[in-house]
């Protein structure tokens, strides 16, 4: 019933308001006969000019300064599961964000994360050789809303350094990322947008709940849920053959064994 109240207001009050506004406006004789005849033609010309101009402005996603891109894949790898499940990170190269090569000659090191973000998903594999270099790679899958990639290329940088026998991961202070998008009016979206009816039903909260998120058969993939794809992170380390990672109670650190 709460749903109906704004509708009632729309139906009853707004037309009245508009009706009286028009009455009130037309009660002034500011509109001479000539003005009255030219209002509509002038308006039409303005509209046509605006329509034409819209083709020359960077109004499409990807064409303007904001740098937002469309994300067209239906699913992204779940970084929490992929490395263990597949025993490899080769698949993840599209989602690589930063990498570091850190020389270290000890045989064991611990991991410490500092800063406002927290990385809890740390995997490592042992390289075949003992070259005294830790290769760290940071992967993040994008946060997608309405097929728009909201994160890739916008993430602040993170720092990974070795201090004594501790790999220090300095996470960035989150920055605010405001984006404005335009949608065409609903009679256009009605026939053009995917999942229009489902969206409507959801808006009216009568959607039959069917789980679209975790596909039981393939948990390593994240599907679009509710027009969104949630972000996952992975810090992946390749450590020399002779080295050990000190496990701690704070981080989820796991070893990956490539085939």
């Amino acid at each position: 019933m709460i749903n109906a109240i704004p509708v009632l207001i729309m139906i009853l009050i707004v037309p009245l308001l508009i009706y009286f506004t028009i009455k009130w406006l037309s009660s002034f004789n500011i509109f001479t006969l000539t003005v009255k005849r030219w209002v509509f033609p002038v308006y039409t010309v303005i509209l046509i000019v605006a329509f034409g101009l819209s083709f020359f402005l960077p109004l499409d996603v990807g064409s303007n300064e904001s740098g937002i891109q469309r994300f067209d894949k239906e699913k992204v790898p779940n970084l929490y599961i992929i490395p263990q499940a597949l025993g490899s990170v080769d698949l993840l190269k599209d989602y690589k964000v930063q990498e570091w090569v850190i020389p270290y000659d000890g045989d064991v090191f611990g991991i410490d994360t500092q800063g406002e973000e927290y990385i809890n998903n740390i995997g490592y594999e042992r390289k075949a050789e003992a070259d005294g270099q830790i290769e760290a790679t940071f992967y993040v899958t994008p946060y997608v809303i309405d097929n728009l990639d909201m994160t890739t290329d916008f993430m602040p940088e993170m720092q990974v350094t070795m201090q004594d026998d501790t790999l220090v991961v300095k996470t960035p202070t989150p920055i605010r990322h405001n984006i404005s998008v335009l949608q065409k009016e609903f009679p256009i979206r009605q026939f053009a947008a995917d999942g229009w009816l489902e969206g409507l039903k959801e808006e009216q909260s009568f959607r039959v709940v069917d789980e679209v998120s975790s596909d039981e058969a393939q948990p390593q993939w994240i599907n679009v849920d509710n027009d969104r794809i949630f972000s996952t992170e992975l810090l992946y380390l390749k450590i020399p053959a002779n080295m050990e990672v000190k496990l701690d109670g704070e981080h989820h650190i796991f070893q990956v064994f490539p085939d």
């Binding site: 729309m10 707004v14 037309p15 508009i18 973000e117 993040v140 994008p142 946060y143 809303i145 309405d146 728009l148 909201m150 994160t151 916008f154 993430m155 602040p156 993170m158 996470t171 960035p172 202070t173 989150p174 920055i175 605010r176 990322h177 405001n178 984006i179 404005s180 998008v181 335009l182 949608q183 065409k184 009016e185 609903f186 009679p187 969104r228 949630f230 972000s231 992170e233």
Partner: peptide, 25 residues
């Protein structure tokens, strides 16, 4: 939403109001 290092906000704008007002008209 929250992405890594990002506090995301997405505002969607539409001229649906114009359509509605045209209906009322």
């Amino acid at each position: 939403g929250r992405g890594f290092g990002l506090d995301i906000s997405l505002n969607t704008y539409t001229a649906d109001m114009i359509i509605i007002f045209t209906f009322l008209w």
